[in-house]
């Protein structure tokens, strides 16, 4: 199990990286943290002619707050999210999520940009970005573009990135006072890809959701921001409403079949997660065990 031979280019700047990508197109692969690319290359599932290593572009690594935006550089590693006071203060959902991403040795190398660009529908970070209403910053031959997460993810391992593009950062609106978060996933073993997972952000006032964003993952070909959540906003949540919402959610999902779960199981688990999430965010444990739906 050895990677096929390739040409290696160590990008010296973002501009240099873009030049290399422009020259080689889809024969090139961007090497960021390598935690998804390297296994695929070792297994010869991917055999690029050229690997463009952007690992040395330190300007792409870092987390900073500017104005009402939390900007996370593409080369920011998962471990950086765990350690960042800015993330803890403004996007604690990411910190909670990263604890579920694989294992420490992977988190030390895997990058936020790599995770987003790889677009594995079962991975945590893309769903968090959907829940947090993030904007993905891309540079390409035509300059810089800002793409909303809903537009960015196009399918399994498919994104709005062209082979000439480089994902450089992701920008999140600051969560603001009173935001509540929920992250949970069901995986067979600690650190495995989730069978179903949920990253949620909510605003709660007077015992009601004033905003609720439910970012599901591993329920379809891309992270899914559930429309069903709207049913729960600005109303008093009752078991009946929750059941109705769960039914709407199950309808909305189009899960894949794989070795861990059938589509029916994924729909079921997504509704369980949603109930548990709503119960936790509203601090109403009775909603979790309602089972009235």
């Amino acid at each position: 199990m050895k990677a096929a031979a390739f040409t290696y280019a160590r990008a010296t700047s973002v501009v240099n990286a873009l030049e290399l990508l422009a020259a080689h197109g889809d024969k090139a692969k961007v090497l960021s943290g390598g935690q998804s690319l390297m296994p695929a290359m070792n297994l010869r599932l991917v055999s690029p002619d050229i690997v463009v290593d952007i690992g040395g572009l330190t300007e792409l690594r870092g987390i900073a707050v500017s104005g009402d935006v939390l900007a996370i550089g593409a080369l920011t590693r998962h471990v950086d999210l765990l350690r960042s006071p800015e993330v803890a203060a403004h996007a604690p959902l990411l910190r909670d999520a990263v604890a579920h991403v694989a294992h420490p040795a992977i988190r030390n190398r895997g990058t936020v940009g790599g995770s987003l660009a790889h677009a594995d529908p079962a991975s945590e970070i893309p769903a968090c970005m959907a829940a947090l209403d993030a904007t993905i910053v891309v540079r390409g031959p035509g300059g810089e573009r800002r793409i909303a997460t809903a537009e960015f993810f196009r399918g399994i391992y498919e994104t709005a990135l062209s082979p000439q593009d480089l994902l450089v950062a992701v920008e999140l609106p600051l969560s603001g006072e009173g935001a509540r978060f929920f992250f949970q996933e069901y995986a067979r073993r600690h650190g495995d890809y989730a069978i179903v997972g949920l990253a949620a952000r909510a605003l709660v006032g007077g015992g009601q959701f004033t905003d609720l964003r439910l970012g599901f993952f591993a329920v379809g070909d891309r992270p899914l921001l559930a429309d069903a959540a709207r049913k729960l906003i600005n109303v008093s949540v009752t078991p009946a409403l929750l059941a109705e919402t769960a039914a709407a959610l199950a309808e909305e999902l189009d899960p894949e079949e794989d070795q861990q779960a059938s589509p029916a199981m994924r729909r079921h688990l997504a509704t369980v997660l949603m109930r548990r999430c709503v119960a936790a965010l509203l601090e109403r444990p009775e909603l979790e065990t309602g089972g009235a739906w």
Binding site: R10, G34, M38, D53, A105, R109
Partner: peptide, 15 residues
């Protein structure tokens, strides 16, 4: 100083 999977790192990346 950080643990990594050495099968997921190219030797050239350790420059």
């Amino acid at each position: 100083g950080e643990i990594v999977r050495s099968c997921l790192l190219l030797a050239v990346q350790a420059q």
